[in-house]
Write a protein that binds this DNA or RNA. Structure first.
Length: 563
RNA sequence: CCCUUCGUAGCUCAGCGGAAGAGCAAGAGACUUCUAAUCUCUUGCCGCAGGUUCGAAUCCUGCCGAAGGGACCA
């Protein structure tokens, strides 16, 4: 019996009770006579932490007691009476103010092990976003330097979120918006030229080691002596070629981190294709654009922003947001129902104008456009914060992180925390390659499932028999309960856009598995005969491995067979 | 002044209407038998004060503390 089946039974029972109450109620009973709407969403089951509270618990009696003209414990007792008769239910207890604690028969609970193994990599998937087109934009760091450790967080979280959306049926495009237009790029180009000519770093330029490396590579591609070039031609050369090199580097480090984007969108293309003009013209037609102080404004205050925004500056240049207008419109024209953008907390001020822009186009903020804000990463050394700056070249890059701890530990430690919490990354701890990263705990659990499977095979234990009623040990009920949660966790992670839930969940599964391993053997001891208990436990072992593997997969972390 | 996020065990953080959790650190125990990177035992005015609710760590208001943000910068 799956949790879904159990909650369906529970729903039917409560609906039946409500129906009978209504039928027998007299008109002057008031509340009891009114129809009470009870849906599957009300019949949620929780898995209690405390095993004394059974396999599943429901608070439905407390929720509906008042509306059904009863007190919680009375209603719970009535529900329990019927639930006890349900196939697969071993025991029902009432506890506290009206909790209904349900214990399943071993056979009913254990059937799940086989179901998981048979579903394989698809176990945990759902249809929450079936067929929904989702554009997920993340990282989008300027190509003026390597991706630093702050951007890496969004790479890990964003890619994981994309995987989770896909698991619930979403048609996801991972997108990287490449800001190759504007003043920062000009500064980048000037910095390259300065480095190439042996001049000092410009006042407002970038000065890292990577600048001289890129400059040297640009010089190599040029047939002749860059020193002979007029300044404006040099600027263009270093801009175009330098950005390409920088961009290739960024792409490669993302790839090495296991993150590949479907679309790398160039901001510059929006200006070259006149998409910006078209977007502004569209908004002008809709009546949201006006001229003032020699500039062109978008009346975002009509849509909840705290001030109107300039879209074309008085010098005739497009403001940054103009690109955003065109970019959003482009995404919509490419057919994405949902456009999600992940930004760092330092950009939270963008939300108002972006949502207003979305509404100005006639779309629905929060549905067609959604902005996720994640807190920044705090870089520490010896307990002291380290300031990173592209200007003076003190940047800890994605490669530094990967070199120090590897892709798995790096990704895991970034995706394990809620995006709402700021995280400190201590460089010394990192380089010590400390073993306290829970990723090893989880990976070890997976490796252990594989070791058990190998040993089982060597001892002649196979999956030729399955008798779920044999899975009677408390740790087996506990493990089965944990395994049953994956689909719900995945859906919740998708709904709330919180990949860290998957990480926390597989940590719990790993713990439950280790405890089961400690108590229950899959392969027989010494000369013992292979029994159906061993065979059935192999199914459970393999189901646990499958769940951990699927969970790690959603985080982009490998599931090793040996450690 | 305004906005956003955070404040839970010694530390790092989960939980976000329903019966206070994990890892680490510290101490004590458990391997002749499937991986000891494991398991077992030991820790709390959920920042403070009100409110909503049958029920609040969770929702609302105020305060305190931390981080970030409020441009015709990107």
């Amino acid at each position: 019996m799956t949790p879904a089946e159990l909650s369906a039974s529970l729903l039917a029972i409560v609906q039946g009770i409500a129906e009978r109450r209504r039928a027998t109620a007299t008109a002057d009973d008031g509340a009891a006579a009114a129809p009470v709407e009870i849906t599957i969403a009300d019949a949620v089951l929780e898995r209690p932490r405390n095993r004394d509270h059974g396999d599943w618990a429901s608070n439905i009696a407390m929720k509906f007691a008042k509306r059904l003209g009863s007190n919680p414990r009375e209603l719970a007792t009535e529900i329990a009476g019927e639930l006890t008769e349900t196939d697969g239910v071993a025991r029902v207890d009432i506890a506290g103010p009206g909790f209904i604690n349900i214990t399943l028969e071993a056979a009913a609970a254990g059937a799940l092990a086989k179901a998981i193994v048979e579903s394989g990599g698809a176990y945990g998937n759902g249809d929450y976003y079936a067929g929904v087109t989702i554009n997920l934009e993340f990282v989008s760091a300027n190509p003026t330097g390597p991706i630093h450790i702050g951007g890496v967080r969004w790479a890990a979280v964003g890619d994981s979120l994309a995987r989770i959306f896909q698991a619930v049926g979403g048609v996801v495009t991972r997108e990287y918006y490449f800001n190759d237009h504007g003043a920062q790029i000009d500064r980048f180009a000037r910095s390259l030229i300065a480095s190439a000519l042996g001049e000092p770093t410009p006042e407002d330029g970038y000065g890292g080691v990577y600048i001289s490396e890129i400059a040297a590579r640009v010089i190599e591609t040029f047939d002749g002596d860059v020193r002979d070039l007029p300044r404006d031609e040099a600027q263009e050369l270093f801009r175009a070629v330098g950005v390409d090199f920088m961009f290739a580097d960024i792409k490669k480090s993302l790839h090495d981190f296991g993150v590949d984007f479907d679309v790398y969108f160039h901001e510059n293309s929006l200006h070259e294709s006149k998409a910006v003009e078209r977007a502004i013209a569209r908004l002008r037609e809709l009546g949201h654009v006006y001229e003032a102080d020699n500039a062109t404004w978008l009346r975002t205050t009509d849509f909840g922003d705290d001030r109107d925004r300039v879209i074309i500056k008085s010098d005739g240049e497009a403001a940054y947001i103009a690109g955003d207008l065109a970019y959003y419109l482009d995404k919509r024209e490419r057919g994405f129902e949902r456009n999600i953008i992940m930004l760092g907390a330092d950009h939270h001020g963008y939300i108002g104008r972006m949502m207003a822009m979305c509404a100005a186009f006639g779309d629905t903020p929060g549905v067609n456009l959604e902005i996720l804000i994640g807190q920044l990463v705090n870089l520490m050394r010896d307990g002291e914060p380290v300031r990173m700056s592209k200007r003076n070249g003190t940047v800890v890059s994605m490669e530094d992180l990967v070199d120090a701890v590897g892709v798995d530990a790096g990704r895991y430690s970034l995706v394990r925390f809620s995006a709402d919490s700021m995280i400190d990354i201590d460089l010394d701890l990192l380089t010590k390659r400390s073993n306290d990263n829970p990723v090893f705990y989880v990976q070890y659990a997976h490796a252990r499932t594989q070791a058990v499977a190998r040993n089982a095979s060597a001892s002649g234990v196979d999956r030729s028999a399955f008798d779920a009623s044999l899975l009677t040990h408390p740790t087996e009920a506990s493990l089965l309960g944990a395994l049953s949660e994956l689909p719900r966790v995945v859906q919740q992670a998708a709904e709330l856009r919180e990949p860290h839930r998957v990480a926390r969940y597989i940590e719990e599964v790993a713990g439950t598995y280790h405890r089961w391993y400690d108590a229950c053997r899959v392969t027989p001891l010494g000369d013992e005969e292979v029994t159906d208990l061993h065979r059935t436990r192999l199914w459970l072992n393999d189901a646990a491995g499958q769940v951990i593997r699927n969970g790690l997969g959603l985080l982009g972390v490998s599931a090793p067979d040996r450690m």
